[in-house]
Simulated scan of single mutants.
Amino acid sequence: MQKYFLGKCVIGIMAIAIGIVVITAVIETVLIVKASAKKPQENATLIVLGCKVYGEHASRSLRERLDAALIYLEENPNSQCIVSGGMGEGEKISEAECMYRYLTKKGINSSRIIKEDKSTSTRENLRFSKKIMEEKGLGNNIAIATSEYHQYRASQIAKSLGFSVGAVSGHTAWWLFPTFYMRELYGILYQAL
């Protein structure tokens, strides 16, 4: 009888733990979807968050962010753009330089693009970009160009820095999405704690 009771307790605890994980994932997913769908204001300052660069070439994820940024910049000709990202391991140029080259090659006037090439995290991307915006008198209205799964966490950091935020979301390839999505769920939880 005691073994039976212990078994039920273990199963009950496991069921509660699984339930908590599922509920947390659902809540975070709703937050991610809402954040990635938030339309930016017209002619907001666009901050493109960096991502992996292979040598001098943008990774697929970075190209997806840049293609979304390109559409926004074409539709909002008075927007300034800050490309934000330092140089990581295996990168021959900074993420900012890579993004600058990509956007100018696609026809965006170089005078609209400001490089922030010191940051190594999302928080630094936004903090260092804020300093640039303050120096140039660009206000606090921004659009963040990043992957859709990353919009919620990035927008929460931006809001904590005093920004008014909209989303310009790059669409992640379906075969890469599950890995990045799961990692982001842990990132959101870590940031919340």
Rank of each mutant, 00 (worst) to 15 (best):
N109V: 03
K106S: 07
D67R: 10
E56F: 05
S61Q: 12
L138W: 15
A143F: 05
Y54V: 01
A154F: 10
I157K: 06
G90M: 11
F128R: 03
D117T: 00
C81I: 04
E74V: 07
G90A: 13
I142P: 10
E95Y: 03
S119C: 05
G86R: 06
E89S: 14
E75W: 02
L126A: 12
E134P: 03
L73N: 07
S111G: 02
S111N: 08
K115H: 00
A68Y: 09
Q156H: 03
S110F: 00
M99E: 11
Y100M: 08
D67F: 00
A145V: 07
H150F: 07
S110I: 00
G88W: 08
E116R: 07
R127T: 13
K136Q: 13
G55V: 12
D117Y: 00
S84E: 07
E95V: 02
E64A: 11
K92S: 13
R60Y: 01
D117G: 05
E134K: 15
S79M: 11
L73Q: 03
E148V: 05
L161G: 08
Q156M: 13
D67E: 15
M87C: 15
Q80I: 02
L62G: 08
R127M: 12
A154P: 04
T120F: 00
R153E: 08
I108L: 02
E97N: 09
E75N: 13
D67Y: 08
K115Y: 01
E134Y: 03
S59H: 04
C98E: 10
G88P: 05
A96L: 02
Q80Y: 14
E64D: 14
A69F: 06
P77W: 01
G137M: 09
E89N: 14
G137W: 02
K105F: 03
N78V: 02
S119W: 01
S147L: 13
E64R: 06
N141E: 13
T104I: 04
L70F: 12
